[in-house]
Design a protein around this nucleic acid. Structure first.
Lengths: 146, 146
DNA sequence: CTGCAAGTTGAAGTGAACTTCAGCTCAAGG
DNA sequence: CCTTGAGCTGAAGTTCACTTCAACTTGCAG
């Protein structure tokens, strides 16, 4: 077999073993077990991990990542097309986020000119006016505009 | 006087009162007190709050924000120029971050083509190879490339 | 077969950024 | 004056994404 141990996975992905176990508990990745109860990973799990890290870079929560990954075929090894479909969706998110940051940048430029930084005049603070509307509760940094 | 109560500040900034008290404990904003120990804010504190929220949008931690704000004059009300100087610095950070997201996007595009999402071949997962090198400890989402 | 690195578990700890709570006090309109 | 809403405090709780720990078991090289 060409199954990988958790050590291999950690080395190849740069993700700590503890994080891999955590991801498994959270249902983001999966493994089989040896007779002695040790984890063995199929190679394509590396791809899932790559996907998770990329999504995190984009600022997506593990919850949302789990949902996305749930769309992958459960039984068979995901094909190139499966991954491409998913990636395309994240690419969209990324573009949205980039667009938001650019708006932020442009507005900040304007604000430097006028020195205002006023809260309601500049739409800087509530970029898409959704942030304040979220009410109390911890607010996500760099929330992804859906 | 035209001092604002914490309720006013919350309403005008869209930031919860509890968060404002928290920011004050953390030394990010300040207030004077009435005889009856209630907070009263000068209007320019709104600008600090705006700045805090903007910086958070860019993905900066409160620690870093505190450092940045420490450069503002402590005694006098910050001038337009003071703010402009600070804003310019954040604008730089924003551009860096946008650049990183764009790299991410372009690479993701490439990966969709080849369907790879491989961890080490694509530099996608460790965009500037610093992430994995950070060792154990919670890793910041969307870390700002310094 | 032995030694030891590598793996296992559940529970508890961490840090960031807040929120919630309980038990009070203050301030302003009627 | 009195009520009612706004504000105060310290301590504890919350969520996210993990890490650390202790005590124990596996697996492979020699």
């Amino acid at each position: 077999m060409d199954l990988l141990t958790i050590g291999d996975m950690a080395a190849r992905s740069g993700v700590a073993q503890s994080a891999l176990r955590f991801y498994e508990r959270e249902g983001l990745i999966s493994s089989t077990r040896t007779g002695g109860n040790q984890r063995r990973y199929e190679r394509h799990e590396l791809r899932r991990i790559a996907f998770i890290r990329i999504a995190q870079q984009v600022g997506v929560s593990l919850d949302e990542i789990r949902e996305a990954l749930a769309e992958l075929p459960d039984k068979r090894t995901p094909t190139r097309a499966d991954w491409a479909r998913l990636s395309a969706r994240w690419q969209r998110k990324l573009e949205d986020r980039i667009a938001m940051m650019e708006r932020l940048r442009d507005q900040l430029t304007g604000c430097i000119g006028c020195g205002c930084l006023s809260l309601q005049r500049c739409t800087l603070v509530n970029p898409s006016d959704t942030l304040a509307a979220k009410g109390p509760g911890p607010q996500r940094i760099l929330h992804a505009p859906e």
